[in-house]
Design a protein around this nucleic acid. Structure first.
Lengths: 345, 345
DNA sequence: CTGAAAGCGCTAACAG
DNA sequence: CTGTTAGCGCTTTCAG
């Protein structure tokens, strides 16, 4: 009647295709395509007819075909480090991912989990470069993974946390909080409580969050005219926090204050202190970073820095999508933090 | 010379396509395709030539085109519940995911993170049904999500943990441990220590792991001729464990033993006990399930049930891939558990 | 605003 | 074993 479908036995009864919809709606495939991609130039009538047909047939566009024709994959990679279990177990990352995933769930983008193999970093790079995804969200970027920063040159990429810049590398887009300032502020609370022998369990030296928080601690110490040699490093896990605390105590120097760069490490440290019969905040004040379960439910609950991790993830997704769309996005987005005073200092 | 490429200005210099490779190798596109899909029927010479060309060009097959033509997506969905943050923060799930992800990383499959919206479960179902993925890995399946079990009828699906069967539903494929037996065994340790007033903080009633562990506790109790009315439920999170512990204590009955159905809940419970000045195991014995950080680093470290979560994930991935390949796979795979006695009972 | 035509890059019979 | 021939289902100029 309208379009002479030429004995097209191509789609007899299988899943409906764009063509099936077109036939039912009495329009051409192009029009259906326009509706799907909500092009503005479609008459209300056509639009209604098509939508009705789509509804009736329960039509869902085929991703592969779409992606092949449009040269966009509608997929975003979530690049996370190899030790996924440890990574996920950190409430910080879990929340960031949730934020990003929920934002993306409201769109047509798909989130592809990409484990960055440390033994074969080339593999991920190849995957990302080969048009498998439209962009990438990169979390917990060790500063020696320069290749990821370089990636920004050929693929829209957004980092969670400031990646380390490398001389000739491009300016990466990232979302972060002001770790240095927040750490300085929370340590100042310790100082204000009269603590004078303040140690820190710092994060890993190959992550900017760790370095920045350490810098914040140092800055607060020097502002107060206090020495800053009581430093031990952990890797943000509770176990590493416990080990660091033991090393700190083993030094035999007086300690009356502690800043752990993550609540998980603080938790590990507390278990050691408890074992030694040391009571917080009576014997020493403890403050930390991240307002998660570990900080809130510690014995005692800890004074800490709160940040909205979900919002970080949401923002990362948002920036990436805009960047994919060709928009110019800000290189740096700093999210706010808040001091949570639980009197553990 | 060999194949008269008809002025094909289709791929001038962009990313190399199968055709570019064919031309360079002096064979037809079919042969290149065969090599890519390592078909056995290719002469060593052709194979060498093609591989050389691929290497030289840095050719990477286009996923979308491949998927469109072959009607396979090479993608696997990882379906997880909406509250991703809480979910990830559970070391159990984090490890299972890591196991599955690492197994899949060694293959051509891609892992797509699918957040199962609880408000709109249809959305995930539609996505899964619409040929976006070749199969699905489903974690933490609440027993009322019948739709996922029904999915098994049309898509290869593997569950992590036994899903609740529904009358007319298909027999789902799943990987799990014997929660009931393991729980019974660990509770028996409590009984053997002379505990007589043993309470339990059970898991949620809509997850089989919770129900099975509760059943194990009950079974151990009745075997010992002890009453089993001291039950409070949590949702596997530390906070819920703390709340349940408080409810338990509020009952005012004597309690000299506790079985928390997850180490995270045990951790929450311990923080409450500590607050009340109760000492473990002096005042009461505590045992739990899962040998993660929470159990190992608790004060005191807890007697618990160990299972290899990574292996669970690996097995799930394995089964799913075989199932996608059309192979018949066992409906039920029970992984071993091990009792870890840390003398906290 | 809409339809027709021409592919996107690859796989899959089917002959040879 | 290899090449030829058709599409997979959708987007996208380009006319109209």
């Amino acid at each position: 009647m309208t379009t002479e479908v030429p004995a097209s036995r191509s789609t007899p009864a299988g899943t409906p295709t764009l063509e099936t919809v077109a036939a039912l709606a009495g329009v051409s495939r192009s029009t259906v395509s326009r509706v799907i991609n909500d092009s503005p130039k479609v008459t209300p009538e056509a639009l209604a007819a098509v939508n009705k047909a789509i509804e009736e047939l329960g039509y869902v566009p085929n991703r592969a075909a779409r992606s092949l024709a449009s040269r966009r994959t509608q997929a975003i990679a979530l690049v996370i480090p190899e030790n996924t279990a440890r990574f996920f177990a950190d409430p910080y990352f879990a929340s960031v991912i949730q934020g990003a995933a929920l934002r993306l769930a409201a769109t047509d983008y798909t989130l592809t989990l990409l484990i960055a193999s440390e033994t074969d970093p080339e593999k991920s790079r190849r995957y990302l470069q080969s048009g498998n995804v439209d962009g990438a969200l990169i979390l917990s970027h060790h500063s020696d993974d320069r290749s990821y920063v370089a990636l920004s040159r050929t693929l829209p990429v957004v980092f969670g946390g400031r990646p380390e810049r490398h001389d000739d590398g491009p300016e990466p887009v990232y979302v972060d909080v002001d770790n240095t300032a927040a750490a300085r502020d929370v340590v100042s609370l310790l100082v204000a409580s009269g603590r004078r022998h303040i140690a820190t369990i710092a994060g890993p030296t190959d992550m900017t969050a760790g370095l920045d928080r350490l810098e914040g601690w140092q800055s607060a110490m020097s502002d107060a005219g206090l020495p800053s040699h009581l430093v031990e490093h952990g890797d943000f896990t509770p176990a590493s926090g416990a080990a660091a605390m033991e090393r700190l105590l083993a030094r035999g120097e007086p300690i009356d204050g502690l800043f752990a760069a993550s609540a998980q490490m603080a938790d590990g440290a507390l278990s050691v202190l408890r074992q030694r019969g040391l009571v917080v905040p009576r014997d020493l004040g403890v403050v930390t970073f991240d307002d998660d379960y570990f900080a809130a439910r510690a014995t005692p609950p800890l004074t800490t820095v709160n940040q909205d991790e979900g919002e970080v993830g949401r923002t990362m997704a948002e920036l990436l999508m805009r960047s994919i769309e060709g928009e110019d996005v800000p290189r740096v987005t700093i999210m706010p933090t808040r001091l949570i005073n639980r009197r553990s200092q």
